[in-house]
Structure formats: C-alpha cells, structure tokens
Design a protein around this nucleic acid. Sequence first.
RNA 1: CGCGGGGUAGAGAAAUGGCAUCUCGCAAGGCUCAUAACCUUGAGAUUGUGGGUUCGAGUCCCACCCCCGCAA
Length: 315
Amino acid sequence: MQKIIFIGTTEFGIPTLEKLSAKGGSASGGKPPYELVLIITQPDKPVGRKQIITASPIKIWAQKNSVPVIQPEKILDSISQILDSGPDLILVAAYGQIIPKAILDIPKFGSVNIHGSLLPKYRGASPIQAAILNGDNETGITLIKMDEKMDHGPIVAKQVVRLAGLETYPELYKKLADISADLIVETLPRLFEGKLKAAEQVHPHATYTKLLNREDARIDWSQSAKLIGQKIRALNPEPGTWTTLDGKTVKIIEAKILSEAKIELPGKIYIRSGELAVKCLDGSVIIEKLQPEGKNMMSGKDFLNGLKIGNKLFI
RNA sequence: CGCGGGGUAGAGAAAUGGCAUCUCGCAAGGCUCAUAACCUUGAGAUUGUGGGUUCGAGUCCCACCCCCGCAA
C-alpha cells in the first residue's frame, strides 16, 4: 500500500482526502487503496473579530479521521517527521507556504500539486477567481510534479471544465475541488506504476495571479455591466466586492447584469420593476443581495424599502 | 482592553423627552378580461435584557446580551 503525505490548508483538499481514505471495492478487501501517513497543515490562527484561535479545515478532517497531523511554522522544521513516515508520494493542495525542494524530493514518486487552473495559465494564488474575473469560457484542474518554482513543474494530468459564465466563486471552487479528487484517484495508479509521462509546461504562455486584496474588490461603476458582474461573481465572499453610499461601505454580494443602452450617471441607483438597479458604463446591474456597513445581509428589495431614493449614488 | 456601526410589527427603515410612523409583505374587500398594477380596510410591537432619572423614556444615564463593517 502506497504511503501518502497530504499537505494543505483549505477546504479545497477535503474531497481529495475523502476519496483517498474511502474504502476500496471487494477486490481490495474493503480497505483504502492508499495509506495517509501524515497530514501537514498551517498552524491554528486567530480568526475573526474576536480573534478566536481556529484550526484549518484540513486539521479538523485529520483529527476526525485519526490521521496524524502536524502544523509547523516552517515546514522545513518538520523534515525529520516527513522522512520518518517514509512517504511514496507527497500531495499538495492549497497549503499557503512555499515547500522547499529538499522536502519535495523525499518521496520515491516525488511531489504532486493540485492547481485550480489550466496551467501554465493563472499560476499563483487565485487561479479560480481569475478564470471568473476574466470571463473565460473554460478552466480546470492541473496536476503537476512540483519543482522549486511556483506552479512551474511538468504536467501529469489535466481536466478541463467548461464555464457557462454564471458561476460564482464558491460554486466553481466546490466543483473544482470535487474534480480534483476524481482526477487524483484516476491518476495515482498510473503514477505509481510509473506509466505517467510528465509534459513540460509551455513556459512562455504562463500568466500569473496575485493574492486579491480589498482594493481589488472595489466596484468601479464606470466599467461595463459584464465586467462588474464577473467581479461580483469572482470576488465573493472573499475579499468581497464593495462600493460606498454616503461615505459608508456597502458590500455587493449578488447581482445580475442587464444590458440597457441608456447611458446615465454611473453608480446611479434606481428602481426597475421593484428591484434595486444601478447604472454602469453600458447598462445596469440589478443588485440581488447586499450588506450595508454595520447591517446584516439583505436583499436588494429590502434595502429599497428603507431607502429614501433621492439622487442616491454608489461611488 | 484594536477602531467603528447597529438591535423599533414577518422584512427594511423613521420618530425635538409627550398618541410609535413609512415602505414592502400578509389578510379581507373592491376595481379589472386579467395581473406581480391600482383603490379601501384590517391584523400584526411589552421598541434586545435588567436597572436608574422623570409627571412622562424608543429617545437621557448605568450594566449586560446579541448582530455586523473595518483591521488582523
């Protein structure tokens, strides 16, 4: 039975862990086909307004499934434990730290990374958001052999996902997480048989994504409705698209776009068939869900009920 | 003790210390070929909790609970 070390921090890795630990068929005597010998995740961190120390979803899963878990500040500090567990493969999904080559090279079959885009497109921190943000009509999952450069190693497997142009980030995230689990299950046997050819990435085609911050998520109402819609779908719930009204921030959580040719002041709020609508460059955006500063999340209609519509403007 | 906003009817919001209003929703009735439109009427609230000041508190004071934005 092949020994695997899983390294990751976010929910993205959960479906993969589930599949890896799932019982096999009768042929394998009902045992999982692989042995998860160790899970490595980020240390517990304070989260939220009350700074409650919170364990990563991966740690919680590990504990629930009785898999040994370690949380080094620096992963290199744990190199002896990694060696001791004698892994045949290291699997990495959304860990959040650079893993040095000294560790990647430990397992017989090397280290494989799960990445949420079709590499070499969208290397880096936010590949899933990038696909939505750019209005791509396809994205996917790529498995690569890891080398010392970020998202740079040769490709061992790839799964394309078509996009309809309506996906939100959480939806696509979930979908890609599930697909990566299937892709891993499909790919590992061939990898362990040594039958897998790794194909070098076409490096000149590489594009990069950075970690998105709050300023990236501010809505510019002078952009096109399509662009604003993409932004809202890509950047919620994190970091969360927002705008301001009378100097107070308002989060825009869900919206649909409306192509109305009439050009008016971008950001102007008006009512269209009882719904909250906002003018932008080439059309309008119907806001379905939003959250004013200090308030709970509410529908666009609820927001309208309390709003004295004068010449209100989102800026 | 990081900074800040908030808790009023099912929902969203108003209310110089003096009868708690408005919009939406809901119910009944009406208009209409018809309707999510329009008109009439109605139900629905111990104003987060506990104290205090006052002739009188949603409003002022004290304490507590809960929700949320920023920051991390």
